[in-house]
Write a protein that binds this DNA or RNA. Structure first.
Length: 492
RNA sequence: CGGGGUGUGGCGCAGCUUGGUAGCGCACCUGCUUUGGGAGCAGGGGGUCGUCGGUUCGAAUCCGGCCACCCCGACCA
């Protein structure tokens, strides 16, 4: 980034405007909202308390969904013998370029190098083989919360770092139908989670062969649209067939004494989802957090000086206690800063609701309420509404829910505005420059590459829902594949 | 790996052309005054100028090597 394109005042108070330079804006927000810092080694990231609090909320709500669908958590090792990766041909090929390999330990060269897991299909396959011998052992439904390492050439905070946190689900089933049902079930869980927790409407679909997970037969993905019109893959669910079962001897005896290979699945969502939240909802004032992921859903700012401040602070604490009783995450900002500073700071940090409580309010028995987005005045500032403490406390749950719905509706409207069905190349090229293009495609990898070469757009997915349609490929004119339109976009 | 940049207090930068031993803004500390949209004044702390070597009486500045990081492409959750 050239110095000239950066904000005039990156050290000061203003963020780089999003329309000016999304990349600089993103970096500013991550730093100034105290989500994360760069680690000392290239591509590494320190997740700061505010950012980690978001991750914990995400983690908990996603984990609840895994438990509700019958999964159990377990932990598998960080180090994997290098030879394991080689056992599944496509899998090695896919991951070889981004592996970190440990060659020395305890001051000695290792007999066999150890790979730092880029994902755990192989170790888990090995363990499944040990644990499974009968159809009665199936299905086995496991999830692991861990860190993985993929050597990245071009890191970007949260979106693509060398080490990242995620969960990886791994299951084994007696037959294809059961494994496919699992693949789709978790795909639905991710989609539902993205919408109902992260407030991001997703395009649901299946990856084209070229974009599939290395070693998978089918890969399902949820793709969100970011504020710059680019797509972000936010969760994937794979049907692995018997590929890993054959590579790791995951076999069982069925009801008829016949030896069979298990059908496996895997599915993951990562800290990248935090990047999705930043890029899907943020604006020129900074972060915009969906209430279910906001570490503070409400911030109360007491105003005044001297005795008056002591009075408003005491009242703010009382109010906070009442809100907490309703299960709301509240923070009272008692820092020695001006009110104006705090308003801007919490807007930057994306807090959904702000309550101001000054001497005049205390006198009148009211509080002032402002919300982060969706209710601005002509000057682009949040409108302030006068409420009694009772009204605030009684209405806060509904207000947060409405705010969540507002974020979803806003993101849907934005996506609709930036999506189009296109049938000619000129329109296609213009469309992928600003958003999603729904187009017919022949399915040939070479043709996908030609499109990417020219427009930097890739097929994101073949939507799972939507009308059947056939015709000719937008690029080469040959008959279309998939029986559906394909969503093309530039992607993170 | 290709292309483009940058390395100077915590952050952002100036100084380098024309060598003379480091400065500005923000942040930080202290005090007083302030507090309804990023407070003011005064005082103060903090930097072997990425690194190694060379030139020179003297190097942030000139020369050479090395290293690191950032941005744009190819790979990826």
């Amino acid at each position: 980034m050239s110095a000239a394109k950066q904000s005039d005042d990156r050290s000061g108070r203003s963020l780089t405007p999003m329309h000016e330079d999304v990349s600089a804006w993103y970096g500013d927000v991550v730093a100034r909202a105290e989500l994360a810092d760069r680690g000392p080694a290239k591509g590494t990231m320190v997740i700061r308390p505010y950012g980690y609090a978001i991750w914990e909320l995400l983690q908990r709500q996603l984990d609840d969904r895994f438990k509700a669908t019958g999964h159990q958590n377990a932990y598998f090792p960080l180090f994997i013998p290098e030879s394991y990766l080689r056992r599944e041909a496509e899998h090695v090929e896919g991951f070889a370029p981004e592996l970190a390999v440990v060659t020395h330990g305890g001051g000695k060269e290792l007999d066999e190098p150890l790979v730092v897991r880029p994902t755990s299909e192989t170790v888990i396959g090995e363990m499944f083989a040990k644990w499974i011998s009968s159809y009665r052992d199936l299905p086995i439904l496991i999830n692991a919360w861990n860190n993985v390492v993929r050597w990245e050439l071009r890191p970007r905070m949260f979106l693509r770092t060398t080490e990242f946190l995620w969960q990886e689900g791994h299951t084994a089933h007696a037959d294809e139908a059961d494994a496919m049902a699992e693949t789709r079930r978790m795909f639905d869980v991710y989609d539902e989670f993205a919408r109902n927790v992260a407030a991001i409407p997703m395009v649901r679909g299946e990856k084209t062969p070229g974009e599939r997970f290395a070693g998978a037969l089918r890969t399902f993905t949820i793709e969100g649209m970011m504020r710059d019109g680019k797509a972000l893959q936010s969760g994937t669910s794979h049907y692995l067939g018997t590929n890993f079962a054959r590579a790791f001897d995951i076999t069982f005896q069925d009801e008829h004494n016949a030896l069979q290979h298990a059908h496996t699945t895997s599915w993951g969502m990562s800290t990248r989802m935090i990047g999705a939240v930043i890029l899907a909802h943020g604006d020129d004032r900074g972060l915009v957090l969906p209430p279910r992921l906001a570490p503070h859903q409400v911030v109360v700012v007491p105003i005044g000086r001297g005795d008056a401040l002591a009075g408003t602070t005491a009242e703010a604490e009382r109010l906070a206690r009442r809100l907490r009783e309703r299960g709301v995450r509240v923070h009272v900002d008692t820092r020695d800063q001006s009110p104006g500073f705090k308003f801007n700071d919490w807007e930057l940090k994306g807090v959904p609701l702000r309550v101001e409580l000054g001497p005049r309010d205390l006198e009148a028995g009211v509080v002032m309420l402002a919300q982060r987005v969706g209710d601005d005045d002509e000057d682009g500032r949040a409108r302030k509404h006068r409420l009694t403490p009772d009204e605030l406390v009684d209405g806060v749950g509904a207000r947060l829910d409405a705010y969540h719905d507002l974020l979803v509706a806003r993101a849907e409207a934005f996506r609709a505005d930036r999506s189009a069905t296109v049938d000619d190349r000129t329109t296609f090229d213009a469309q992928v420059a600003v958003g999603f293009a729904h187009a017919l495609h022949c399915g040939e990898p070479a043709c996908e590459e030609a499109i990417q070469e020219r427009t930097r757009a890739t097929p994101r997915c073949v939507p799972t829902e939507g009308p059947d349609e056939t015709g000719v490929c937008i690029e080469c004119g040959r008959p279309s594949a998939y029986g559906r339109r394909v969503v093309f976009a530039r992607a993170y």
